[in-house]
Simulated assay, not measured.
Amino acid sequence: MTARTTVLDSDVRAAMQALSAAAKKGLGDPALAELVQIRASQLNHCAFCLDLHLTIARRHGVSERQLDLLDAWEEAGEVFDERERAALALTEAVTVLAGGTSRTKSGGGFVPDEVYEKAAQHFDEGRLAHLVALITVINNWNRLMVSRRIPAGSTRW
Rank of each mutant, 00 (worst) to 15 (best):
79 V>A: 06
65 R>I: 10
71 D>A: 09
93 A>L: 09
110 F>T: 00
45 H>S: 15
138 I>E: 10
104 T>K: 09
10 S>K: 11
81 D>Y: 14
131 L>E: 00
5 T>I: 09
9 D>H: 04
21 A>K: 15
80 F>A: 07
139 N>W: 09
71 D>V: 14
72 A>F: 08
92 E>N: 00
95 T>G: 01
40 A>M: 13
50 L>Y: 09
130 H>D: 03
121 Q>F: 07
12 V>I: 15
112 P>C: 10
50 L>H: 09
31 A>F: 04
112 P>G: 08
31 A>S: 11
45 H>T: 12
65 R>C: 12
32 L>I: 15
140 N>C: 06
151 P>K: 14
33 A>S: 14
25 K>I: 13
100 G>R: 03
69 L>T: 07
98 A>D: 11
113 D>T: 13
30 P>C: 15
6 T>I: 13
147 S>T: 05
150 I>Y: 11
51 D>P: 01
32 L>M: 10
56 I>Y: 11
63 S>T: 12
154 S>W: 08
116 Y>V: 12
28 G>M: 03
137 V>R: 00
106 S>E: 05
153 G>T: 02
79 V>S: 11
67 L>K: 00
53 H>W: 05
50 L>N: 05
30 P>D: 13
39 R>F: 05
47 A>H: 15
54 L>V: 05
46 C>P: 00
47 A>I: 04
128 L>E: 00
154 S>E: 07
24 K>P: 00
14 A>H: 05
140 N>K: 04
29 D>P: 13
35 L>D: 00
13 R>W: 13
74 E>A: 04
119 A>W: 01
23 A>Q: 04
132 V>F: 05
128 L>S: 01
93 A>G: 14
75 E>Q: 06
109 G>M: 03
133 A>K: 12
3 A>Q: 13
102 S>P: 11
144 L>P: 00
113 D>I: 14
23 A>D: 03
7 V>D: 10
27 L>A: 04
94 V>L: 13
87 A>R: 02
1 M>Y: 14
87 A>H: 00
150 I>R: 08
5 T>M: 06
11 D>G: 14
140 N>Q: 08
134 L>Q: 09
80 F>R: 00
112 P>F: 13
144 L>H: 07
63 S>A: 15
156 R>G: 01
59 R>I: 00
